[in-house]
């Protein structure tokens, strides 16, 4: 029910169109890249899905995390702009329910944009490589992994937005976080556990590291959920 309410609230805000547009933009990245440099990529020996991800995922992941930061900022900006938040607080609904409903909505929108990106990659596979059922399954695996690694970043962005009344402050914090993530060296495991840096990781043959990142992602989501509930309690005490 709450998810339905959050969906109603984003009417005429442009959130859905932004996620669709962002998904399409990210989907176009591998298409343009391969169109411009197909010879270079076709010469590589790795699996086609691996080639596509290694060559394009950094840019696509950057667009995805920026989309999540922006979406999170606007989802709470809707509440703060005309005092909707005040009304919600005076209704028999928990603030945590509001937060998790927004998280659910954002996750759904993220899935939509990732699906568009998967279609873009599938097009590249069918046009430049030989698209087979096994490649499709492999592509799904890569995107499922990418989706799970996006969750902590989205959650952190939403937590920042929940506690920052001003749109530019939550956006600024998100942008700083994304920039920090871009500057982290790719070979540093610990630093890459930063929620905004996780989405840049690609599913690799090193399954141990992939599993570590996956478990870290799920752990971060659980930890941030508890942290948010704790911060809510503190805010209520100070009110």
């Amino acid at each position: 029910m709450s998810l339905g309410l959050e969906w109603q609230k984003i009417k005429r805000t442009g959130v859905l169109w932004t996620f669709l547009g962002g998904g399409i933009l990210a989907a176009v990245v591998p298409v343009i890249n391969l169109a411009a440099r197909s010879e270079m990529y076709l010469r590589l020996q790795d699996s086609p899905v691996d080639i596509l991800f290694k060559g394009n995922w950094q840019l696509m992941a950057l667009l995805n995390i920026l989309l999540l930061v922006l979406g999170a900022c606007v989802l709470y900006h809707i509440e703060y702009a005309d005092n909707g938040q005040l009304k919600m607080c005076s209704l028999p609904i928990k603030e945590s329910t509001l937060f998790f409903s927004k998280l659910g909505l954002m996750t759904g929108l993220c899935l939509v944009s990732l699906s568009l990106e998967a279609l873009g990659m599938a097009f590249c596979l069918s046009h430049w490589f030989n698209l087979s059922q096994s490649l499709c399954l492999e592509l799904l695996k890569y995107f499922a992994y990418a989706f799970l690694l996006l969750l902590p970043g989205g959650m952190l962005a939403l937590i920042l937005s929940a506690f920052c009344k001003n749109l530019w402050v939550s956006l600024g914090c998100g942008v700083i976080g994304v920039c920090a993530a871009i500057l982290i060296p790719t070979d540093n495991f610990i630093l890459n556990l930063f929620p905004f840096a996780l989405p840049f990781q690609v599913l690799t043959l090193n399954t141990e590291q992939a599993v570590c990142y996956l478990l870290a992602s799920l752990g971060e989501v659980a930890f941030m959920a508890l942290m948010f509930l704790g911060l809510l309690k503190i805010r209520r005490t100070l009110a």
Binding site: Q8, K9, K11, T13, D82, N83, G84, K87, S90, P92
Partner: peptide, 16 residues
């Protein structure tokens, strides 16, 4: 659940 309220300025969603 039992209280209806109007506090300070009216609170609403401008886009709806």
């Amino acid at each position: 659940k039992e209280v209806g309220s109007l506090i300070e300025a009216p609170a609403f969603y401008g886009n709806l």
